[in-house]
Design a protein around this nucleic acid. Structure first.
Lengths: 215, 215
DNA sequence: TATTTTGCGTACCGTACGGTACGGTTCGCA
DNA sequence: TGCGAACCGTACCGTACGGTACGCAAAATA
């Protein structure tokens, strides 16, 4: 039910058949479960109850399949719009803390980790195609949300910074530190999440100390 | 000449023959050049002018070779001891800026990026063996240097923090942000280094704002 | 109902890799 | 000089993957 719904939305966002979305969902499951080695065309076909010929017809080749997986997964992410009116110190802090929590959630997600591992592994041999795609479709989205929030804070005279990008970089670093890399290297994601989630408020405090207009 | 000397020191640190060190050096070159796909046993043997049989004799199997490469590479890193006496605000700042620059240098190095990509790619399929090894031999080393510096700053009443680990995490996040991940995903390392190096001083300023005893 | 389309299942091909075996050669040593 | 260890180069084997081709069933269309 939930999976089917996800498949629907993700497929709709990428302009694909519902069936094709279901196939991509199975492929993502395979990737999460067994890494890149498990993402074979035969394996995907078997897991999704379709033929290899259909895979090549729909996605071109293996790289096309992977690209479709990234785009499809990115289509599932929905950024929450922030109401910029009536922003107070407390509400800004709450929004920042919520954003930090969502950021940690996204980065520690199984599918996100698997796709990042896949793109990083591919990055060395053939340009940065998948890496750029992942960056574009994934990070840009949540980055826009952060930029909007930060700009709203600045307009409300609650934040002070030169550029939103730089301030976002600071916030990102304070929240994430090296958590993402450690998870990518195989450290237990849920354990690391438990370690970093409580630090989200401290990170936001530090960010406000650095960029809060009151301080 | 330089390579030979590196091979000597790296091999000595890992308890290997000079010849074996040279082989690992060629293997690292192959990995940097062409990624994991280029790191085949036949390719290493050809590039290093040795036989596959010797490779298996020395390193066991392909994973043993990779582990040896990580340990060998880590053996080349030498941490600089910091003189903790007579630490002033200015000298502490200089030390922190120097540390930040070295951190960026290490993370943006060709070999470091290639090994991290390899370990991340391997992380999904078989535990976190290589990831742990890389973390242990690589990050721990520079982390110890940071911890020593931070503790010295605290003893000199120039820094205030709860635990050195947490403070190091803050410093790391401020300096690195998402630079490492972006490089791992294939963004041009030298360009990113140029972008982040000037920010090292700002990052240290921010860190001192957060943890400086004077502020 | 006849026909076209779609797609599943399977078999197949070429290639490339990890790992092993073997003949020939160099080098240290008695 | 004779011997053994180490090692290079190459050939070989089993496996697994990406990609293609084919036979056949089911659904859609006329």
């Amino acid at each position: 039910m939930q999976i089917a719904e996800q498949a629907k939305t993700g497929a709709a966002a990428a302009g694909l058949t519902e069936r094709q979305g279901a196939v991509l969902e199975r492929a993502l499951g395979l990737l999460v479960e067994g890494g890149e080695r498990a993402l074979t065309t035969a394996g995907v076909a078997r897991a999704a109850n379709c033929s290899k010929e259909s895979l090549y017809k729909w996605f071109g080749d293996r790289d096309g399949l992977i690209s479709a997986m990234i785009t499809y997964q990115a289509g599932k992410v929905r950024t929450v719009e922030v109401d910029a009116r009536a922003l107070t110190v407390d509400s800004l802090r709450k929004h920042l803390v919520a954003f930090a929590g969502d950021l940690i959630d996204v980065l520690s997600g199984d599918v996100s980790l698997a796709l990042n591992r896949l793109a990083i592994g591919q990055a060395s041999r053939e340009g940065a195609g998948l890496g750029r795609l992942l960056q574009e479709r994934g990070r840009r989205q949540i980055g826009k949300r952060a930029a909007a929030l930060l700009e709203a804070g600045r307009k409300a005279k609650l934040l002070a910074f030169d550029t939103a990008d730089e301030a976002y970089g600071t916030l990102y670093g304070l929240v994430v530190s090296d958590m993402h890399l450690r998870m990518l290297l195989g450290e237990d994601a849920s354990a690391l999440k438990k370690e970093f989630s409580p630090r989200a408020e401290k990170a936001v405090d530090a960010f406000l100390t650095l960029h809060g207009a009151k301080g």
